[in-house]
């Protein structure tokens, strides 16, 4: 497609272009708001999972098992089912079960256990000797978390953030089911149901570029904070 014909296409399909721009905005809104709330809740949950483990700083078998089971349940429910299953909860939180804001609720609920497990894994990579050294120098448990565990696990946590955001981009495509909009929704309705191959192609390209940008930013950040 030459530059000219692209410009022609643009002029002929102005409505579609604005539709795509809107859809991109909705996707970004869903991914980043659910990602943000997901991290705010998922990171502490991951930390708690790690600390309550056997031999952990705040060893607590009952707490660890209960959290583990809840997280596993969250992780095993297919997202498309979660989306409709928690509609009453969604309505309770945002007042409606339709629209972008409504899609953020199940996306967040789906992201929390995912993030928790990834963060738990990142914390596991911190050598136990470091925690021991901190204990030996008289660090309180809370200081060990904020000054040793989290900073040392930061590269792993940023990696977890990247993986989660990319996964959320994928999940957000299903949000069309509840009228959440977004690129996936446009792809399905215009591309698949109206047999418009061009629209399908454009949405996929935008999603690919979006994922590439998120991944590259994540990798770049990991490189900057990783001094291991």
């Amino acid at each position: 497609m030459s530059l000219n014909s692209a410009a022609d296409w643009w002029a002929a399909n102005e409505r579609l272009v604005y539709l795509l721009i809107d859809a991109l905005g909705q996707t970004l809104a869903m991914v980043f708001s659910s990602g943000f709330i997901g991290f705010a809740l998922g990171i502490p949950l991951g930390v708690l999972l790690h600390l309550s483990k056997k031999g952990g700083l705040l060893e607590n078998h009952v707490l660890n098992r209960s959290l583990g089971i809840i997280v596993n349940i969250g992780r095993s429910i297919p997202f498309i089912i979660l989306l409709v299953a928690i509609i009453p909860f969604t309505r309770f939180v945002v007042g409606t079960s339709i629209g972008t804001a409504a899609a953020v609720v199940p996306l967040t609920i789906g992201a929390i256990p995912f993030i928790a497990r990834l963060v738990e894994g990142a914390l596991l990579e911190v050598p136990s000797g470091l925690v021991e050294a901190a204990q030996a120098m008289g660090a309180k448990p809370q200081q060990i978390i904020t000054k040793v565990l989290l900073p040392e696990a930061l590269p792993g946590i940023i990696n977890a953030v990247t993986i989660t955001l990319v996964t959320l981009v994928g999940y957000s495509a299903m949000a069309g089911t509840v009228g959440g909009g977004g690129l996936g929704d446009v792809g399905i309705r215009y591309g698949y149901q109206r047999f418009d191959g061009t629209v399908m192609f454009i949405t996929v390209v935008i999603l690919v570029v979006l994922v590439q940008i998120i991944q590259s930013l994540g990798d770049h950040l990991v490189k900057r904070v990783d001094h291991r």
């Binding site: 008289g138 040793v148 900073p151 291991r228």
Partner: peptide
């Protein structure tokens, strides 16, 4: 805090 300790594998914070 009144007892210092050093280790075989140093245990320095890489960050």
């Amino acid at each position: 805090r009144k007892i210092g300790m050093i280790f075989q594998h140093f245990n320095l914070l890489s960050s």
